[in-house]
């Protein structure tokens, strides 16, 4: 969409006004600074998704809408998690982080801050694997998606 003030609130407003849900939304300018790209995750029947797509297309600032599920795509989300890490837990958490191909990016006596990217379900799985009581804070970006292979989204 056009990288203009207010464009994001139009999208958000559309979802709340029409009762669609937003699972996650991530947006930032692209290599062309006049354009932003947004990845929006929503859940609904085919009919609902069709209406969502049409309604988004109707927004004047939206340049193009694609449903990544129509083809093969790659999806990544970034998560930062601060976990309590004392004594015996420290090893365990390090190992878990390795298994999930994350990295520990900040350390104190009592905690680790872990960076993890992957599909949203992988991040969920990591959180499930860590003891609930050990999780101090999480922050996630929401998914960003892109088509697989040579296929590109051109405007």
């Amino acid at each position: 969409m056009e990288n203009e003030a207010g464009a994001l609130s139009r999208v958000a407003g559309l979802f709340s006004a029409r009762g669609y849900n937003i699972e996650s939304l991530s947006v930032a300018p692209t290599e062309d600074p006049t354009l932003s790209r947004m990845t929006l995750v929503t859940i609904g029947s085919d009919d609902v998704v069709e209406q969502v797509t049409k309604q988004l297309n109707k927004l004047i600032e939206v340049v193009k809408v694609i449903d990544l599920n129509d083809g093969n795509h790659i999806e990544r989300e970034l998560m930062l998690v601060k976990v309590r890490a004392t004594e015996s837990d420290r090893e365990e958490i390090k190992r878990l982080t390795e298994i999930f191909r994350g990295s520990i990016i900040d350390v104190t006596d009592k905690s680790y801050t872990i960076e993890l990217t992957g599909t949203s379900s992988k991040l969920d799985a990591f959180l499930d694997a860590v003891k609930r009581s050990a999780i101090l804070e999480t922050v996630r970006t929401g998914a960003s998606g892109i088509g697989r292979g040579d296929w590109i989204l051109k405007v």
Binding site: D47, E50, K54, N57, K58
Partner: peptide, 8 residues
């Protein structure tokens, strides 16, 4: 003229 009117 409005695709969102169709099959709504």
């Amino acid at each position: 003229i409005d695709p969102s009117s169709i099959s709504k």
